[in-house]
Amino acid sequence: MLGYSGPPNMARRRALIVVPCFNEEAALPALLDRFEESLRPLADTHEIDILVVDDGSVDSTSEVARKRGVRVARLRRNLGIGGAVQTGLRLAARQGYDCAMQVDGDGQHPPSEIPGLLATLDLPEPPDLVIGSRFVGEARDAEWKTTALRRVGIGWLSFVLRTFVHVDVADPTSGFRVYGRRALDLFDDNYPYDFPEPESLAIARAAGLKILEVPVKMQARQGGASSIRGFATAYYMLKVTLAVLLTFARSTKPWRRPKRDM
């Protein structure tokens, strides 16, 4: 199995890298190769497993991942990015991992940034949720960020989050994240399944989690296409804005907490 255990050491942090994939048979092998290279320096301090969550792919994503020796959770139906990520977070929460990391399977998130993101958990006051951001620090000078239209949308969502739930994050749509133990417990129970990233920040803040944003350099996707195009863009903006406002309303009123479903 592809994992990075290194020498036995009780203090090593157990981390699960969750890779949500939908029809990524072409991009996945290269990504897994880069994991091997990038995670080697962490072997002394971390015990890292990789979980590919196959979100109902119709190609051979699962087979490709299994052949590479990583853990594979195959969803029988396409649930979307939220359902796929929550599957990984659930596994991490239940199997006692100290943290989980989300790295998209389309190659946008370079594994070389993983050690830096995980290192934030060693800060004197470790955050519960770490966002790899394209728009802070030295990442602002990166060659590739995203299209101008998307940056406008991201700016709007950032404004909504800052105004209503006091989450000051420049890149709320980034899926390059580290989830600490408290975040795992929270999202095991409650994680949005439709365009989840900005809403999950609001949920995390409402639950009192500490959020930290750190600069990362991302790349253009290596394969596939974004699901947020055309009409879906307007739906995305409306849905996410309303979802954040609902989370704000829930956090300020004594609404009954929703019961855990199943």
Binding site: A73, R74, R76, G83, Q86, R90, L91
Partner: peptide
């Protein structure tokens, strides 16, 4: 959704 996730986790 929960059931699809649980089936995937049990299969894993």
């Amino acid at each position: 959704i929960t059931m699809v996730q649980e089936v995937a986790l049990i299969q894993e």
